[in-house]
Design a protein around this nucleic acid. Structure first.
Length: 494
RNA sequence: CGGGGCGUAGCUCAGCUUGGUAGAGCGCUUCGUUUGGGACGAAGAAGUCGCUGGUUCAAGUCCAGUCGCCCCGACCA
């Protein structure tokens, strides 16, 4: 045993570094729930399966909204808002859709003192109510395409719930578009899938696999469903957004027609696509560590927090912090000064737990030298570059580069994990074993048959996450030996 | 919906086996001293023991029911 190790083992146990949060690796669930509550993202509400999104959590949601909305506008979409309640007779028109959602729809049956003649569904999703409106609005090919998004809440009667990942009521956005041709609708579906991938990887810093879902995993009523799938640290996959090509299934059920240039009355082709606050849950699990959250800078409610270190009867560190913070704010930075009456160590731990990307320490030594001590959340203590000195007048220019670097480094850490937990497998036994043990994303040549998928699920609990073109022509399905048609990622899922 | 666990102060929990005046640590409030990795001292406030019913002279403790939460599975666009 080396000197240093012995010396360390003989020192009395220090207070655990992190209070109230268990380590991440042994029990991801316990870590996840604790961090969501302690970081004040959410609070449990006195309603089963629902959470309160607290200001810090809502600020995360606002950043998601801001970045996604920007991308929606850039691709020609407009926002609108549709009613929460859907009359029963309308909901039941698209058979597959109703069957898919029936088990989790909540119903309003009374209003005030009156029993309603017809039940009203609380929207589990809005294809129906929006489809009904599109039928009224669309007359001609000149009215197409219709490109609308809504930011809304939806309700699904879930049995087991967890903050962000699955709650009965949740926030999301749902885009609903109508097009003159199947080709345009398919292009829209793929375009929005690309938007989601761009958001996940470049804003939330969560690497994903994007592709088509298998038939059994398809949205009820869709002709094709695409998804982005992220890999969580426990080896389970998280479906983080979906984009559906609905073909003419909804336009036929809800009679959405237009007169085309050839004077024929035709049904439109529709799409729908959504991302929910579940994405935040994925981001939290992917990046967090034993000290708590690590929020990618682009999503961070606070990009940098000032911790003034004061000496008795000397408030100059606090004043300097406010002065610097104010200058940074005018340059568009999201910064905060923590001038509460706590020790610096307490504040370090607190803001690390809450995932703030950069901490700026302003103490006597800094005031002396005219520099700030900037500490990065993405690096371990003592790690090269974890702590840098920046001259006060250089903060404005240096911070952007540092934040960009934290953003990049968090993505790279996550990408390294995804890559090292993605296994291209050609042997059936190895495939089943890796699925069972939640090794990660298991990539195989696959036949695409529902029976084959069902057998794999029964044996391992893993399902197809999404698919991409067959990588080796003529390959046999790794699971069943039939001729393979695609490559598919298999994993257990949230 | 199946299996397991848990509801006592804001939080984490002890007390329940063997019924007898509600406890600890942390947090909180006030004052003072502090502040470069979760400070220290003094004083103080805070709980219808998840809810309902039963047994009993007496229930946090025993019994029944019920609601809620957590974990594992099933289900889950």
């Amino acid at each position: 045993m080396s000197e240093t190790v012995r010396a360390a083992s003989e020192t009395p146990e220090k207070e655990p570094l992190v209070k109230d949060i268990p380590p991440k690796a042994p029990d991801l669930s316990a870590w996840y729930t604790a961090v969501c509550l302690k970081a004040e993202l959410v609070s449990y509400a006195p309603v089963r399966g629902c959470v309160v999104l607290r200001p810090y959590g809502f600020a995360l949601w606002e950043n998601l909204q801001r970045h996604l909305d920007e991308r929606f506008k850039a691709t020609g979409h407009e926002n609108a808002y549709f009613p929460l309640l859907i009359p029963e007779h309308l909901l039941t028109k698209e058979a597959e859709h109703v069957e898919g959602f029936a088990p989790e729809v909540a119903w309003v049956t009374e209003g005030g003192q009156e029993k309603l003649e017809e039940r009203l569904a609380i929207r589990p999703t809005s294809e129906v109510i929006i489809g009904v409106m599109y039928a009224k609005w669309i007359q001609s090919h000149r009215d197409l395409p219709v490109l609308i998004n809504q930011w809304a809440n939806v309700l699904r009667w879930e049995k087991a719930t967890r903050p962000f990942l699955r709650t009965m009521e949740f926030l999301w956005q749902e885009g609903h578009t109508a097009h003159a041709s199947a080709k345009e609708a398919r292009e829209e579906t793929e375009r929005m899938l690309a938007v989601y991938r761009d958001f996940a990887e470049n804003v939330a810093a969560v690497p994903v696999y994007a592709g088509a879902k298998s038939a059994s995993e398809r949205f009820p009523g869709a002709v094709e469903t695409y998804s982005i799938e992220a890999l969580m640290p426990d080896g389970k996959a998280l479906q983080s957004a979906t984009s559906h090509d609905l073909g003419q299934n909804f336009s036929k059920a809800y009679d959405i027609t237009f007169v085309d240039t050839d004077q024929q009355i035709k049904h439109v082709y529709t799409t729908s696509w959504g991302m929910s606050w579940r994405m935040l849950g994925g981001m939290i699990m992917v990046h967090g560590d034993d000290r708590g959250l690590r929020i990618p800078p682009k999503m961070a409610p606070i990009e940098a927090v000032f911790v003034p270190i004061v000496r008795a009867n000397d408030s100059s560190a606090v004043e300097k912090s406010h002065e610097l913070a104010s200058a940074l704010r005018s340059q568009g930075y999201r910064v905060r000064v923590d001038d509460r009456d706590q020790t610096p160590g307490w504040k370090y731990a607190e803001w690390e737990m809450r995932g703030v990307p950069l901490r700026i320490e302003i103490g006597p030594r800094d005031l002396e030298s005219g520099t700030a001590t900037v500490v990065r959340r993405d690096k371990e203590k003592g790690q090269e570059g974890a702590k840098v000195s920046v001259a006060f007048d250089a903060l404005g220019s240096r911070l952007r580069a540092l934040l960009d670097d934290v953003q990049r480094s968090l993505f790279e850490q996550a990408k390294t994990f995804l890559d090292s937990h993605t296994f291209a497998v050609t042997n059936r036994e190895e495939f089943l074993e890796k699925c069972r043990s939640r090794a990660g994303m298991i990539d195989i040549a696959w036949c695409g048959r529902p029976e084959c998928e069902a057998e794999i699920k029964a044996a391992t609990s893993a399902t197809t996450r999404n698919m991409r073109p067959l990588q080796h022509a003529g390959a046999k399905c790794v699971a069943c030996g039939e001729l393979a048609k695609v490559n598919a990622y298999f994993a257990q899922s949230y």
